[in-house]
Simulated scan of single mutants.
Amino acid sequence: MITVSVCMIVKNEEAVLARCLDSLKGIGDEIVIADTGSTDRTKEIAARYTDKVYDFPWNEDFAAARNFVLSKAEMEYIYSADADEVLDDENRRKFLEMKQTLSPDIEIVQMRYANQLQYNTTYNFDTELRPKLFRRLRTFRWVDPVHETVELTPRVLDSDITILHKPQNLHSPRDLSILERAAKSGKMSERLARMYAKELFISGTDADFLAAYPYFEAILHDENKSLDEVRVAQCVVSRAARIKNDPDTFFKAALKNVIGEPCAEVCCELGAWYFAAGDWEEAATWYYTAANGVQSELDLRTSGSIPLLRLAECYLKLGMTDEARECLARAEQCT
């Protein structure tokens, strides 16, 4: 049977920490918690479950905090948990069974992360596989009887264990603040830039888009950026330019996107531009395009409920009541 270190970083989680740790009963051979500055009873609650509670001064870097808590673990495998997660009885049983039978050559176990869309997160899937359990120390070995090489690809198991994500509140203001600072400091990977854009479209305010504008607008002029990076930037710049009422920048970004394979986000922005100008027919064209046949780049709602609701408004302005009712019915099915 494998041994497991449950590793967590926490801050002001008194409302949910006991719920999480109770649901993990029997899974962890040790629990290691790093507190990043709680001002409530979080550390007191954590101390009921483990004597391995450490302070980690918050430095706006979740990866640094997670690396710190991992450095304190001693078991064979790490289970990375968040305080707002819960394992129900069925999935706790599955986890305990897996703990008994997991093959020693498995290095990473992925588990299904559920309830994403319900809580308006940056992930466009209600349930998705995430790496949650992994070896603390990896053993490298040679493979192949001749022309031998070191095996570098980890052995991954996609399990049927489901973790319920049940946050008490949204973290988007905190996350957007960290992302904005990362962009300004040049600490933005391609992956993180896409996450920044997703966060903006799903929960960003006008002020958030305007703060992000310089970073994403610069991407449009950088020949070293990939096509994926440019398409993401076109989405953000289109929205920000519309907020700024800057038609030159807006149409440069938007029309370059729709020349090739348009994304739903930009089609919605074009619809919003023409809607604000009172051109209901042209707005309807772009909302119809977003809702029928193009893919979302960042936010699934931009190819579903958002354009359908706005298209219904356009149809009502144009006196097309039957078409408006149909759009509203389709939008209701998306939510």
Rank of each mutant, 00 (worst) to 15 (best):
P247Q: 12
T36V: 10
Y288P: 00
D279M: 01
I9S: 04
A277W: 01
A64V: 01
Q118W: 04
R191Q: 13
T39E: 07
Y288W: 13
S80K: 07
S305Q: 12
I45D: 06
P173R: 05
A193W: 05
D35M: 04
G319K: 04
D35H: 03
L157N: 00
Q295I: 02
R93W: 00
E190T: 15
L129D: 06
R48W: 05
I306S: 02
G278A: 01
F140I: 00
L298G: 10
P214V: 09
S189V: 12
K187N: 13
S296V: 00
V16T: 13
R239A: 15
A183S: 15
E14M: 10
Y123F: 11
W280N: 08
Q295N: 07
D206Y: 11
A264L: 00
L300Q: 09
G37Q: 01
Y287C: 03
A329F: 07
Q100V: 06
D40H: 06
D105G: 00
T153R: 14
P57T: 06
V109P: 02
G260S: 12
G26K: 07
Q168Y: 04
L308S: 02
A233Y: 14
D51R: 14
S296G: 04
T3G: 07
P167F: 09
A218V: 10
Y196P: 05
D208Q: 03
P173Q: 06
E30Q: 15
M195A: 08
S303R: 14
M320F: 11
S5K: 06
G186I: 07
T249V: 14
A81C: 05
R231F: 11
D61A: 05
L316F: 09
S38Q: 05
T249W: 02
A182D: 15
R19I: 06
L311N: 08
Y315V: 01
F201P: 09
G304C: 10
I243N: 09
L137R: 09
N67M: 08
F250Q: 09
H171I: 12
R174W: 13
F275T: 05
E30N: 08
R301K: 15
K99R: 15
D82T: 12
K244V: 02
E326L: 11
T149Y: 14
S177C: 08
M8L: 15
L318K: 10
R231E: 15
F95W: 11
L164H: 15
N245A: 10
A212C: 14
L210A: 03
D88M: 05
P145I: 10
P173T: 03
P131Q: 00
G304L: 11
